[in-house]
Design a protein around this nucleic acid. Structure first.
Length: 211
DNA sequence: AACTCGGGGCA
DNA sequence: TGCCCAGAGTT
């Protein structure tokens, strides 16, 4: 399979594929990405557009405090633990990083509430680092196409970096997410209208079910 | 690798 | 009600 050909087709299919989280600084992207876990980006944007009107820095968030932050973001799921993590992360950014968001994967994933996925989103979108963030969509789409056969998101990340040219890592992440949300859905994927089905192992194996 | 956590929205 | 959503942390 030619991965570049596949990505070319996805770029034509989803010309607007990009990060849809609302932010203007690395710190804001970090907060928005932490909030986006198990929560739709539409709902996250609703919360952050209000939140970032008044609060933009780690200092602002520490002063805001866990309790009030929890109230503000309660319209987005998981607010208790997320609020706690966001305040603790803000404190660490203040005490260890002069209020800045670090630019290495290792430093980022040591922040509370930040895993590989969130760290890679921040690195690739805010700092222009070549990285692939593996979320549920990227994981599912990669498995269905047949690029990977692992159950481990970290293995998936390394395999994708091996197969996809470095310059396209970040773009591939967004293309797979758009494809996963709009077409290659976890339930009832729309294989008939899929523009890359000729490359897809899942489609080949289930071809009989689509006629 | 396999849980658990967590809340709003929609069927 | 039951299931899903641009995961992380713990066991």
């Amino acid at each position: 399979m030619d991965i570049n050909e596949l990505l070319d087709i996805l770029e034509k299919t989803y010309p607007d594929a990009k990060c849809e989280l609302h932010y203007t600084t690395p710190f804001e992207l970090l907060i928005a990405t932490i909030l986006s876990a198990q929560c739709t980006d539409v709902r996250v944007n609703k919360v952050t557009s209000k939140l970032f009107e008044k609060y933009n820095t780690p200092k602002d968030f520490v002063e805001l405090g866990e309790e009030r932050l929890g109230n503000i973001i309660k319209s987005c799921g998981l607010y208790k633990s997320k609020s706690n993590n966001i305040i603790n992360t803000s404190k660490i950014l203040l005490s260890r990083y002069f209020g800045q968001v670090p630019q290495t994967l290792e430093e980022l994933i040591n922040l509370p509430g930040v895993g590989r996925k969130t760290a890679n989103v921040v690195l690739s979108n805010a700092y222009g680092v070549d990285a692939i963030a593996v979320d549920t969509h990227v994981f599912r789409v990669s498995n269905r196409i047949g690029i990977i056969s692992s159950k481990n998101p970290e293995d998936t990340e390394f395999k994708l970096m091996e197969v996809i040219p470095k310059k396209r890592w970040s773009k591939a992440h967004h293309l797979f997410i758009f494809h996963g949300r709009r077409t290659c859905k976890s339930q009832n994927p729309n294989c008939i209208d899929c523009t890359i089905k000729c490359y897809c192992k899942y489609f080949k194996e289930n071809r009989g079910n689509f006629n």
